[in-house]
């Protein structure tokens, strides 16, 4: 009959109206400044630069390779390379960013910079209360404001940070092993060269060997 649905609908809204006074669980909103929602771990807002150790500028992982700057879809990153070099976390001398600015009014939080960074130097922050009275300068953050410690990274994204740390440690071990192997190989090569030179001095050089008969069959 006409009006049946209206009565039913009115009953539903009346139930909600009265129910919201009786049971607090019904209320879906969170009273924001006083109460805060527990955000999921994967939440992301704007990027920041990770540094190791205690000195933000000395410990920056960024080597100013500018991949993020090139990949950034809205082009909100601006990097200037340094003229000199400073040692990175392995101890290898690297270029560092003389300027690293991100315009967070342009940034769209896509996380592409994080995904392309080969040095795990840029990560996404969870800070969202960034309102400012200066809409140009206030939203352009430089490397001093962007630099945040690895500890901060561990605090906001614990799982991800552990994984990154493990990877970096493995890489460091590998790099050290490689360096060691390289050094050994170098020493060996040097020794061999020395021996060869000695042998060459003893015997005259012979003609080069004949070329191989046929190349191996390929599929």
């Amino acid at each position: 009959m006409l009006g049946e649905g209206i009565i039913k609908g009115m009953a539903v809204t009346a139930k909600n109206f009265l129910g919201s006074y009786v049971s607090e669980e019904r209320l879906t909103t969170i009273q924001y400044p006083e109460e805060r929602q527990v955000l999921p771990e994967a939440v992301r807002q704007f990027p920041f630069l990770v540094f190791d150790g205690n000195d933000p500028m000395a410990g920056l992982r960024c080597v100013a390779c500018q991949i993020c700057e090139k990949e950034c879809p809205p082009k909100c990153i601006y990097i200037e390379k340094s003229k000199d070099k400073k040692p990175d976390y392995i101890g290898k001398p690297q270029i560092y960013p003389a300027t690293f600015d991100i315009d967070i009014s342009v940034c769209m939080s896509c996380q592409i910079c994080v995904e392309v960074c080969p040095f795990d130097a840029i990560k996404m922050d969870t800070e969202f209360e960034l309102s400012t009275s200066d809409r140009f300068g206030g939203l352009l953050v430089d490397k001093h404001q962007l630099a945040k410690s690895n500890g901060h990274y561990h605090r906001i994204h614990p799982t991800e940070a552990d994984e990154v740390d493990g990877r970096l440690a493995a890489e460091k071990v590998k790099a050290e092993a490689k360096a060691k192997a390289d050094a050994e190989a170098k020493a060996k090569a040097a020794a061999e060269a020395k021996a060869k030179a000695a042998a060459a001095a003893a015997a005259p050089p012979t003609a080069p060997a004949a070329p191989a008969a046929t190349p191996p069959a390929t599929k």
Binding site: N16, F17, S20, R26, L27, T29, Q31
Partner: peptide, 13 residues
Amino acid sequence: KGLGRIQNRYGPN
């Protein structure tokens, strides 16, 4: 406030 309560929220407070 009434509309808010109908939609299970507080309304202006």
